[in-house]
Structures are given as structure tokens and as C-alpha cells.
Design a protein around this nucleic acid. Structure first.
Lengths: 346, 346
DNA sequence: TTTAGCACTCGGCACAGGAGAGTGCTAACA
DNA sequence: TGTTAGCACTCTCCTGTGCCGAGTGCTAAA
């Protein structure tokens, strides 16, 4: 059977209607509301064909039809027209990145918040992945007799800081010396490139302070393990209650529980890291818990390095065209902002 | 009318039963299940009295009775026996504070998580209030030609760090000098004690670098404003779905929305800061949105300075005796742990 | 003062019937 | 041959009814 232009028009009408109303769409509605110049009976025949082809589904015999995931896929790939942002929306994004925030985490957090407010979906954002950025500066800052602060500044302004115990009798100069060694070793490298063997040099330097060396190794190795920042920021988790398909307490609950599964969300976002806007519809999703949801993601970068992913998650009956355009703009605006703020200076 | 011992026994039975079942309790149940040696008819008369006295309420004529907030208050103050922790619970808390976490925020976050797991309620925790701790060390760390990192270490190991722009031509030595001035001015003070006028000295020092001075003032003043860390950590927000009184989507939703109102939660926690375990029952609560909920809070301290508050929030039909004992132990264990880790060293 | 007994109340549930929306099929029509 | 009008049929949703059970309040007896 061929998917001729009339079938496409009808399909599009059904998808549009269902996205707006969340109610199964009947043949009469299509014929009347989307004046295609054909009668409801004709529409009925076409709808029957579309169902046979797998684009429509019927919740029960005497209900209208709803689009299948396959239909949404077709819609996203071929049918929908990606709108540009409304003035209001563009303004919203512009405002977000004009405020003076220096903390990178805060930027991402605010981005998530704005995303959920603009789209009315739940937003998720992956914290910047440290393994992607280079180390700019390492410094041991003395705190008191027995504590020092190990600060690592990266090219993206991110810093990891950890307090470490130092043995008695270590002075500020000594820390300064160690800092210099660490800098010489690791400056310019990414976290991923750091090799534990590089530390052996330092071991020799610190031969007389074995305990201190051990502390350092301890902290640095944990830092390596946490180089992949697995933090996930959420925005508008309760937005899900706005959708009629989540008026059921069981579904709402399982959705909210899902949002607490940070590991799962992490995997989703990390796997969407290969550039551009990505749409994942219902059953296309690798995780069973997410059939019924669609996810639109976009990446954000610093210069040409992809740092992380932002996304929105909502019912498969999602306003894809709006979501895609917002995600697209947001990803780009965020990248521009980050590159401007933290971009590698010569 | 007098609240004699039989009335108290009956009231206690009703409260216990209602806490466990969430179902209105009838006279038969009380007479049979809590063998008090009296008939249901007698219980009925007593219950009628208790209702008149304001301790019981009737959802509708042919239902049993449920305790009023007044009854819960009596229960918490007089009737309930505060149990000690089960071995399992004690073990759980012990484990929590035996792991090696250095980041204070992480400790509080984990505390909230464990709290919600142990109690099955939603837990809330107020981040440590910086105005309570003293500044130990301030240092400007050079990052590159145009950026420096301002690190503030406090007596509780908390640090605030912010990137600031520095004008061209400022070298590491210069930053070191400025750091020393800042240290001389502010070391030993609390954030609350910092006076903007103290900066005028520095202005003179930096006369030739007006721009840099402005940046510094900018950052420091924002730090002051944020000295009160308004961050709230939540744990187990979806636990609320476990309770039959929140099977209604409207109520569940409004509860979850409430949990996103960080300002409101902040006020609740800050106002519970005057030591010890505090129980706030339903309508006793200053916020209308929270009638129907009870909150049990405890404070945590560093040495003798109260740093913040932790708490659990659940339906008024709360297992007060368990909640109070857990909060009491947790607050104390957390304080001990913090004092051991970050306690003021000579 | 306590208790047994009884009439009464009210929510919850199952069930039936009707309305409404939508379908599929058939037959007529262009 | 494709399109349309008509019609019987299906299925959900809503509403009203009647019954059951839990629980109460009152009365009268112990």
C-alpha cells in the first residue's frame, strides 16, 4: 500500500489533533476540522489503511485512533515543520545568558529550569563531563596545620576541590613546590589522559613524606574515578501532572521514580552525546520504563569539545516541533555562552 | 469533663490504630483489639466525650473516628513512649558516618537520603549556614592571564569559590599580597561579621588597579548576600505515594509542588533552629499548605554552633515515636561526626 | 455505671440502562 | 473505480438504584 499525499495529510491532521487534545481522533473530526474536502467515510477508509500500515492504533473498537510511535517518527523526520522561536521564547533564552553567572554548574542548573518553564516538560541536564576538558592549574592551598585544599581548575572553569590531610611540619613553601610538580605533570592534559604512573616522579620527590604522598594519591585517584561527573540536574519534575495521560497515580508515580534513577538518566544523556538534536520516541527508547515517553536532547559544547547534554522528557504525544526548536536554540545558545565565558584563552 | 486514665487509654489505642491503618477507628475495634476489658458501647460513650473535647473527629456519621491535631499533640507530649533505635537502625546510622566523605555538602546530602530511607517519609535538610562559621583562610589562586580563583575556607570545611576576572599584568605575587591583606582582615570572623567598610583599606592598596578592586568587591558582596546558604536538600520525595491519604492525584501533586518551594522549606527549617527535636503537627504549622502534614526536625551543630536543620515531613498520621527517636539520634550523630571532622583545631 | 440490643445513617460497590461517539460495511452515486 | 450516505453495531462513560456492612446513638435492662 502506498502512503500517498492524502494519507499523509490525514495522518498529519490526526497527529496534530492528538498532540493538542490527547483524545483519540475520529474520522468526523478529521473531515470537518481540517477541511480536506473529503467526507468522513473516505477518511474512515484511509484511516483503516493507515492502521494496517502501522501508523495508527485504536484503543478500543468504538474510539477514534491515536498515532503510533512509527507515526511520530515519520512526523518528526518528514512531516513537521520546525518552527523558529517566538519572540518571547528568544527573549527568554537571551535573558538567561545575559545574567552574570560565573559558576558553570549554576549555568546548567538555570538552563534546566528555564527549559522546563519554556516547554512545560520535565527537563534533564547532564553536568559537564570533566574528562572532556583540560587541566589548567593545580594548586595546594594551605588551610591550617593539618589540612590543605587541593584545587584543580580546568579549561571550562570547573573546579574540583578536596580537603586533604597533611602531616605536621609541612609548610606553605613545600606545598607550593608540590603544586609546581603537579602542574608540570598534568597541565594541559584532560582528566582522561591522566596516568597514575605519572605520579611515581612525585613519589620520589616526596620520599620523606610517605603519608602525605599516600593522601595525595588517594585523592587524585578518587578524582579520576569521578572524572565523569555523573550529576544530573532536573527541572519541572511536577510538570508531568499537567498531562492527562499522567492523571493516573500509578503512572505519575512511576514516572517520578524514574526521574530519581540518576544512573538511567545518565546513560540516556551520555548516549545522546554525538552532536545535534536527537529525538527518541517511546519504544525506540532502550529502556523499557520509558516507553510512553519521548525525549528530545541537544548537546552543549565548549569550543569544539562536547561537554554534556540537555534534554526534555514528556509523553510521546509531545509538541515535537516546539520541543526540537527550543532544544536546538538552547543547545547552541548555551554553547556560545560557555565558549565566550570559558573558551580557551591563548 | 475530665480526661481520666480510661479516656487516655482509649485515645492512645485510637491514635495507634489510626497511625497504622489510616482507617477511621470504630468502637468495636478499640474494645476488641486493645482488650481494655470494657464493651464497645462503653467505648462508644467515651469516644463521644473525646470528640466533644476536641480530640477526635468523625469524617462522616457512620464512620469511625480519627484523631485530631490536638490529639496528636497530646500524644507527642504525654502519651507516646520514645523508643530507642532498633539495632538495625543504629547500624544504619553508624555506617553512614563511617564512610570517608570530606565534602560537607555531601555529608548532609547523604544524611537526607538515609533519613528518607529509614523513615519512609520525605526528608528535608538545610545546608550549613555559613554565617555561623568562621573564616579560616582566604586565597586568590591564579588560573591564567585574566582569571583568578577566590577560595574561602571556613572552620567547617565549607568553601566558597568563585572565579574572578583580573586585569592584564597582575602576577602571582601580587595576588599573594592581596590574599594576605584579605586574610589579615577577615580571618577568624564569621561571614555575618564581615563589614563592607573593611574593604576600604584594600581599596587604597589596589589604588592602581581600580578594576580589579571592583571585581573583588563585586564577588565579596555577592558572597555576603549568599552567606546564608539557602540550599535545601530533599530525600525520598516520592515516598509520599506510599500513603493512602496521598493516593489522590491532587493532593500528591500539591505536596510535590510544595517540596519545590524552597523558600518555604527554608523558612520552616530556619525557624526550627533553636535546638533539639521539634514536632510541628498539621494546623500548628504556620503555612496553610502544610495542614495535613507533620514535620519533625532536629538541628545539627559544629561544636556548640548550630549549623543547620534536618527534618522529615509526612502525613499528620505519622509514626511520631519512631520519627522523633530517629531524628534525635541522627541530629546528634551528625553533629558528633562534623565536630570530629571539622572541629576547630587550635 | 455498664452493657446489650436495635433502629438509623451513610459510604461504597455492583449492576443495569441509556447516551454518545465512532466504526465497519453496504449500497448507491459520479 | 473512488467517494459518499446511511445504518447497524460496539464500546465507554455516566447515572441512578438498591443492597451490604460498618458504625453510631439511644434506650432500657442489669
Amino acid at each position: 500500500m502506498k502512503l500517498d499525499s492524502r494519507k499523509l495529510k490525514i495522518l498529519q491532521a490526526i497527529i496534530n489533533d492528538y498532540i493538542m487534545t490527547a483524545e483519540p481522533v475520529g474520522s468526523r473530526t478529521v473531515a470537518k476540522k481540517y477541511n480536506l474536502g473529503i467526507s468522513s467515510a473516505t477518511v474512515r477508509n484511509e484511516m483503516s489503511d493507515l492502521e494496517e500500515m502501522g501508523f495508527l492504533e485504536q484503543p478500543h473498537t468504538s474510539a477514534g485512533r491515536i498515532p503510533s510511535d512509527k507515526a511520530y517518527r515519520l512526523y518528526v523526520d518528514k512531516l513537521m515543520q520546525v518552527r523558529s522561536l517566538s519572540e518571547q521564547e528568544a527573549e527568554y533564552i537571551k535573558d538567561l545568558y545575559e545574567s552574570k553567572i560565573m559558576q558553570l554548574e549554576q549555568v546548567i542548573l538555570n538552563t534546566a529550569k528555564v527549559l522546563s518553564e519554556m516547554t512545560n516538560y520535565t527537563s534533564i541536564a547532564l553536568a559537564p563531563q570533566l574528562s572532556m576538558v583540560t587541566i589548567k592549574h593545580i594548586q595546594l592551598v594551605p588551610v591550617d596545620k593539618s589540612l590543605a585544599l587541593l584545587v584543580v581548575v580546568t579549561s571550562s572553569g570547573i573546579l574540583k576541590d578536596t580537603l586533604i590531610h597533611i602531616p605536621e611540619g609541612i609548610d606553605s613553601d613545600y606545598l607550593y613546590k608540590v603544586s609546581n610538580i603537579l602542574n608540570a605533570k598534568f597541565r594541559g592534559k584532560t582528566f582522561a589522559q591522566i596516568d597514575i604512573r605519572d605520579l611515581s616522579d612525585i613519589r620520589n620527590e616526596l620520599a620523606e613524606n610517605q603519608k602525605f604522598f599516600n593522601s595525595l594519591v588517594d585523592v587524585l585517584t578518587t578524582s579520576f574515578r569521578e572524572a565523569e561527573n555523573r550529576e544530573i540536574y532536573l527541572g519541572g519534575t511536577t510538570n508531568i501532572f499537567n498531562f492527562p495521560e499522567y492523571q493516573d497515580i500509578i503512572r505519575a508515580r512511576s514516572f517520578l521514580n524514574l526521574m530519581e534513577e540518576k544512573d538511567l538518566l545518565y546513560n540516556i544523556l551520555v548516549n545522546s552525546r554525538n552532536g545535534g538534536v536527537k529525538v527518541s520516541i517511546g519504544t525506540e527508547n532502550p529502556y523499557e520504563e520509558l516507553r510512553g515517553c519521548s525525549i528530545v536532547t541537544a548537546t552543549y559544547s565548549l569550543g569544539d569539545r562536547v561537554l554534556g547534554t540537555i534534554g526534555v522528557i514528556g509523553p510521546t504525544r509531545m509538541e515535537y516541533s516546539r520541543a526540537v526548536s527550543i532544544m536546538d536554540h538552547m543547545g547552541k545558545a548555551l554553547s556560545r555562552y560557555l565558549t565566550k565565558l570559558y573558551g580557551e584563552q591563548p
